[in-house]
Design a protein around this nucleic acid. Structure first.
Length: 591
RNA sequence: GCGCCCGUAGCUCAGCUGGAUAGAGCGUCGGCCUCCGGAGCCGAAGGUCAGGGGUUCGAAUCCCUUCGGGCGCGCCA
């Protein structure tokens, strides 16, 4: 339970009492009332803006409303101090017992601490990665994969029912290009083309994908089909070659993602949607709604394409739903555009009953979000929200120097390379240390360094230290039950140092952080919070070095030691809880 | 030309959806650290939140505008 919402409820109850007393008008809107930790801890444990928000509609001055409200809050159990400050804030200080109760709750809940009900079972579809099945994953994909997976984990913790989904673009020109490249490798496997021939085809742009990873695919086709597909016209071989190539590439992608610890609940095939007639059905439905028409688009101003000519097109009325222009759904050869398929796909998601849709895309798809949101508005009747998280570039560095990457030279870094080099947990955590729309530096040297400015290490080190304290305690008191449940029953009221209480308050803020991060769809907040917790814990640890009285374990004072161990265990619990969202394994010791 | 994202300390970045005196790490400067549970501790300096205007009790946060950077802009996915 988020203690801040608990106290918000208390504040609202007192507001209701003031309504009953006639101080406030009937039916006053309390939606904007908040209870939050104040920026400056000197102001107390919690602050509410109630008086400032409610004063105006009540025709009062904030401070005139704050006084009677503060008087009522002061009478509440657990509240030890209330004062009115600044423009009308009401600051409250809570009895230590309240915070200690949070710590006990944390220990009893274990890593489930922070679980929330705000999702209320709403169904959320998180679509991420969705890379074309034309090759192995590279680092750019890794960020989207981690952000999507962690966001999904965060939403699950907040009480949403989450589906992790991958949209397979297996119907367009890209996979035909893949098939052509594989066909060349197939002929190479049969000895009919040399490596130089392939290089020549690449140079002449007859094929688009030249990577070695297609060599075994070509060989597999040779094994299955012999030379029967080698000299036939493209029409005869492109189907089977493409299908086989896509299947192999998807296996590669699944393996790469598995190495990152990412898996999906659903893979949706674009081709399957087309073949099931869903694109036709969607367009027919939109036509019925009067949302499809034939028209001529204006050329984009200032940057007219050379070959621009006005031409009637089949268009979707995206501008009715907030987009800048209406969008074409059909190519001049009569086939559907990629967008038409995406319309059908998003309609399909809506029909599967999701309440919220989230797409994680690369930043280069920014120009695509308005039209997708327009589609979702149109097919969801305004009841389904689509949020698109755009992930910026990852800059790979080594000791501050850019890692040279070139597709042509074959030196581009794959997801697998990175995971093999630093481990999946490091990749996952680091990818979440920036908000998704900011570029991220990934420095091989830095992310494995043992130092304060490497957040993965810093957080893991805190967890390992906490486990180490527990180990020492077990050695000191071998017969004592030191399980978290037992520690929850310890005399935690012996925790009275300001630093200790500050850390407890920080841990007590975890449920609130989960909720706000989930609502904002911002998993990176968890990373910063964990670094804060680690920092506070390391600080406390260090104090014990200067002052033996502040050490966690005092061999002569078992009761106090157990209380402090409870706090240490709380730190470990919250870190484990946060890392679980990230899909990162908390370590018990550093290697 | 239009749309979206971004601009916060010397550097890298937070800033809880509009709250109080804008924070952290690194770096810099000044001290401490010969022994505790390894990879440090305390303190200081450092800001026109890119500039300007607006909304209101209150703006880094919302609106307008200028400047600067990134991405995108009819049948590529």
């Amino acid at each position: 339970m988020n203690i801040f919402t608990t106290y918000r409820d208390h504040v609202l109850a007192e507001v209701a009492a003031l309504v009953a007393a006639g101080t406030l008008p009937e039916g006053i809107d309390t939606a904007r009332v908040t209870v939050e930790p104040p920026r400056d801890p000197a102001h107390g444990d919690m602050a509410t803006n109630a008086a400032m928000v409610l004063a105006k509609p009540a025709g009062l001055k904030p401070r005139d409303l704050a006084e009677p409200l503060a008087a009522r809050l002061k009478a509440m159990t657990g509240v030890v101090e209330v004062d009115v400050a600044g423009p009308g804030f009401i600051n409250m200080r809570l009895a230590p017992a309240i915070w200690l109760g949070c710590l006990r709750q944390c220990l009893r809940a274990g890593p489930a601490y922070g679980d929330s009900m705000i999702g209320n079972g709403r169904r959320v579809n998180v679509e991420f990665v969705s890379a074309n099945p034309t090759g192995p994953m590279h680092v750019g994909h890794a960020r989207g994969a981690v952000v999507g997976d962690a966001l999904a984990g965060l939403l699950e913790k907040a009480g949403f029912r989450v589906t992790r989904e991958y949209y397979v673009n297996d119907a367009g020109a890209q996979v035909d290009a893949l098939a052509r490249a594989v066909h060349a490798r197939y002929r190479q496997a049969l000895g009919r083309l040399s490596e130089d021939d392939i290089a020549g085809m690449l140079a002449r742009k007859e094929i688009e994908y030249g990577g070695d990873y297609l060599v075994p695919v070509g060989r597999a086709i040779a094994d299955d089909h012999g030379d029967e597909l080698a000299e036939k016209p493209e029409d005869a071989w492109i189907g089977p070659v493409r299908d086989r190539a896509i299947a192999v590439m998807l296996d590669v992608i699944r393996d790469d993602l598995a190495a990152l610890g990412v898996s999906f609940d659903v893979f949706t095939s674009e081709r399957a949607l087309v073949e099931a007639g869903k694109v036709d059905a969607t367009l027919a439905w939109l036509e019925e709604q009067g949302l499809i028409y034939t028209g001529v688009l204006e050329p984009p101003k200032g940057k007219t394409p050379e070959d621009w000519e006005p031409r009637p097109q089949t268009l979707f009325r995206a501008t009715d739903f907030g987009d800048d222009v209406d969008r074409p759904v059909r190519k001049s050869d009569g086939s559907w555009t990629y967008f038409a398929g995406d319309m059908a796909y998003h309609r399909d998601k809506v029909e599967r009953g999701f309440d919220d849709l989230i797409n994680v895309f690369g930043a280069d798809h920014g120009g695509y979000v308005k039209r997708l949101q327009a589609v979702v508005k149109a097919v969801g009747g305004g009841k389904v929200a689509l949020d698109v998280k755009l992930c910026q570039l990852v800059k790979l560095l080594d000791q501050g120097e850019p890692v040279k990457m070139s597709k042509r030279a074959g030196t581009f870094v794959t997801l697998r390379d990175v995971v093999d080099r630093v481990g999946k947990d490091v990749v996952r955590f680091i990818m979440l240390t920036r908000k998704n729309d900011a570029t991220l530096d990934f420095d091989f040297a830095k992310v494995t360094e043992q130092s304060r400015d490497n957040p993965v290490w810093y957080v893991q080190y805190a967890h390992a230290r906490a486990c180490s304290v527990a180990g020492h305690a077990a050695a000191l008191w071998p017969t004592r039950d030191l399980s978290p449940e037992a520690l929850a029953a310890a005399s935690v009221e012996l925790l009275e140092a300001p630093e200790e209480l500050e850390l407890i308050r920080l841990l007590a803020g975890w449920p609130r952080l989960v909720e706000s991060a989930a609502e904002a769809h911002e998993p990176h907040r968890v990373a910063y919070y964990l670094a804060d917790v680690a920092g506070a814990f390391h600080g406390l640890w260090t104090k014990g070095k200067d002052d033996a009285e502040l050490r966690f374990l005092l061999p002569d004072d078992e009761a106090r030691s157990l209380a402090r161990l409870a706090l240490v265990q709380g730190v470990a619990t919250v870190i484990a809880s946060g890392l679980q969202i990230f899909g990162v394994q908390p370590v018990r010791e550093l290697r």
